[in-house]
Amino acid sequence: MSLIYEARWVFLEGILTTIKITIAASLLAFAMAFLAGLGRLSPFAPLRWLALVYIEVFRGVALLVQLFWMFFVLPFFGIVLDPIVTAVLALGLCNGAYGAEIVRGAIKSVPHGQSEAACALNYSRQQALWKILIPQAIPMMLPPFGNLAIELLKATALVSLITVHDLSFQALTLQQTTMRTIEPFTVVLAGYFLIAIVITGLFRLAERQTNARLGRGAR
């Protein structure tokens, strides 16, 4: 284990990169999830189709293929992105497509009586969506979004294959510098596990907050 201690900076660089990419890509994914999820529910048909195409394409193609495509193919179109930017884009867009189904599903699962009551009280469609449906859908989105964030964290490992020095990349670096196998990979796996625990904890906290605000906790 002392070999690992000596290589701690390599490990730290990796874990910080992984955390940074996870946060940036999650933000992009949530934004895309809302855009596409609401797009799918739009009364305007072209918007619905656009959202559907986005969701199907980014869910239908393997993430690694998307990453490689952006990394190797985009330059042929004159678009050269930093590997980290490529990583955030690919992870954010792909997970956003999965998240869009969460957003759409949660909004659709708000009981129908709620939109009827909003209609009877003469809320406009937009007002009903933003004031009645979305606030009630968000607590339902949190648990699946928590799972999605974990999936995204795990998916960040793939960015090591496009030269980003993340935690997984450093696993191989450590393996080569220490000439050991078990220790570097175990430490790296533990690093991911730790981040996952933090993410799970944060989402639990958010769930408790929103539930309390819904008055469910105040019983």
Binding site: A155, A157, L172, Y192
Partner: peptide
């Protein structure tokens, strides 16, 4: 296993 990347798990099996 569910919280850690498949890629690193594969490395583990492959190298260890």
């Amino acid at each position: 296993i569910r919280s850690t990347p498949l890629l690193v798990q594969l490395y583990f099996l492959f190298f260890v």
